[in-house]
């Protein structure tokens, strides 16, 4: 214990900062979630309503719609980014001429600012002036512009596509790192034993990538669940709420409608979901450590 006292002292500043910038806001959000904060009252004049805000959030039709959108957005973005990123990692794991350059190019979406990317995509997909529509019309593929963002049926899919484009390089990096850990001798031995490429992939590569895949998927799920920038910049949750997800709805409640109490209750619910994901993430990490 005495020997560890110095260790506690070393980590104390970091713990203090964490308490200030994480624990206090979390506590205050939870506290605020018990109050009504209408736009005509200063925050100090807030009215205690107990758990009413939670009941209102959980009972609101608009929240139910946003929940479905959030589920689709999170799961589809994660699944597609994972498949695309994994495929890119497999392709780039084998040596070929120009591999380094291609790796660099494929990393571009990941390193550019999300806000800048969202604005660029907004113009690419614009329903009247979009570059993609102009190209399609110039080449005779279409007679009318595409309507990606002003259509309630296609807007969410369009945002998911942009999000996947932005995220797949992250998966690619993670999986490339994972692929480096697959023992070469094992692959060669399997080849000598007559295993084909698919069998080597399925029985050797995939099992070795289990943990890194799990961690990657959990990180993606958490990031997408909180993914605010692309939907907000590109559509603001519209049209008619068709691309509204939890996080944009919380922002709108807090800063558009000045319902800090309701937004706090909503944030606490989001926090609970995120903590659950965090739990599984930590479990996956611990499991990987034990396995290694």
């Amino acid at each position: 214990m005495v020997r560890h006292r110095a260790d506690y002292l070393y980590v104390a500043p970091a713990v203090l900062v964490m308490v200030l910038v994480i624990a206090y806001p979390v506590w205050f959000t939870f506290y605020l979630s018990m109050f009504s904060t209408p736009p005509n009252l200063a925050l100090e004049d807030k009215i205690f309503v107990g758990l009413d805000n939670y009941a209102r959030i959980l009972g609101a039709d608009s929240v139910h719609e946003a929940s479905l959108n959030t589920l689709v957005w999170t799961v589809a973005s994660t699944a597609l980014a994972f498949v695309l990123g994994f495929g890119a990692a497999l392709a780039l794991n084998r040596p070929f001429r120009g591999r380094g350059l291609l790796r660099g190019i494929l990393l571009v979406p990941y390193v550019i600012s999300a806000v800048a990317a969202a604005y660029v995509w907004r113009w690419l997909l614009h329903s009247d002036l979009g570059v993609l529509s102009a190209l399609a019309m110039a080449t005779g593929l279409r007679s009318q512009p595409f309507n990606f963002l002003d259509n309630t049926d296609t807007v969410l899919a369009s945002l998911i596509m942009v999000n996947v484009w932005k995220e797949f390089p992250f998966v690619m990096i993670m999986m490339l790192a994972g692929l480096q850990t697959v023992p070469d001798q094992l692959l060669r031995a399997a080849q000598v034993d007559g295993a084909g490429p698919w069998q080597r992939f399925w029985h050797i590569t995939v099992p070795h990538l289990g943990n890194v895949s799990l961690v990657t998927v959990l990180l993606l799920l958490a990031a997408n669940f909180n993914g605010f920038t692309i939907p907000w910049v590109m559509t603001g949750g519209g049209p008619a709420g068709a691309s509204e997800i939890w996080i944009t709805q919380i922002y709108q409640l807090a800063f558009g409608r000045i319902r800090f109490g309701l937004a706090s209750a909503y944030s606490v619910i989001l926090f609970a979901v995120m903590m659950t994901m965090g739990y599984f993430y930590v479990r996956a990490l611990v499991g990987r450590d034990r396995a290694s």
Partner: peptide, 16 residues
């Protein structure tokens, strides 16, 4: 009217 009326601000109407 422009299809993009749902996502446009007035600034985006100036170019057309």
């Amino acid at each position: 009217v422009p299809v993009s009326a749902l996502t446009n601000t007035q600034t985006e109407n100036q170019d057309p």
